[in-house]
C-alpha cells in the first residue's frame, strides 16, 4: 500500500485498510468443531470441496485425498454433511 496513512498495526481514519487483510487475519480461530478427513472411503466426488463456503477444502480427486485449511475453516460442518460416503467426521476443537 503506497499510502503512508495506512498501516496494518494501527487503525486509520475511516478504518481504511490495505487489501489482502483476509490473508493476514487467520479467521479459523472462530471454530468450535473441526472436520477430520478420514481418507478411507473417499470416492473423489469433490462434494466437500465444492460445498465449502470458505473455499478452504483442498485435495486431489484422482488420489481420493482431501483435507482442509485450519487457518480459515470455521467448522460449519457442511463438508461432513455433504459427503455421500460419510468419510468426514466433525470433532470438538480442543487445545
Amino acid at each position: 500500500m503506497a499510502n503512508k496513512l495506512l498501516s496494518t498495526e494501527k487503525l486509520s481514519i475511516g478504518c481504511v485498510a490495505p487489501p489482502g487483510a483476509s490473508l493476514v487475519n487467520k479467521t479459523g480461530a472462530w471454530r468450535t468443531q473441526r472436520p477430520v478427513f478420514k481418507q478411507k472411503d473417499c470416492i473423489g466426488c469433490r462434494a466437500c470441496d465444492l460445498a465449502c463456503p470458505e473455499g478452504c477444502v483442498f485435495g486431489d480427486p484422482k488420489k481420493k485425498q482431501f483435507d482442509f485449511d485450519p487457518d480459515y475453516c470455521k467448522g460449519c460442518g457442511i463438508c461432513a454433511a455433504e459427503c455421500p460416503v460419510d468419510d468426514i467426521d466433525m470433532v470438538m476443537e480442543e487445545k
Binding site: 499510502n3 496513512l5 475511516g14 478504518c15 481504511v16 485498510a17 490495505p18 487489501p19 487483510a21
Partner: peptide, 16 residues
Amino acid sequence: VLKLDIDDPATFGAFT
C-alpha cells in the same frame, strides 16, 4: 485524504 483508487486499492470501513 483517502480515496478509492483502482491503482492503489484499499478497503473502507474494514473488518475489525
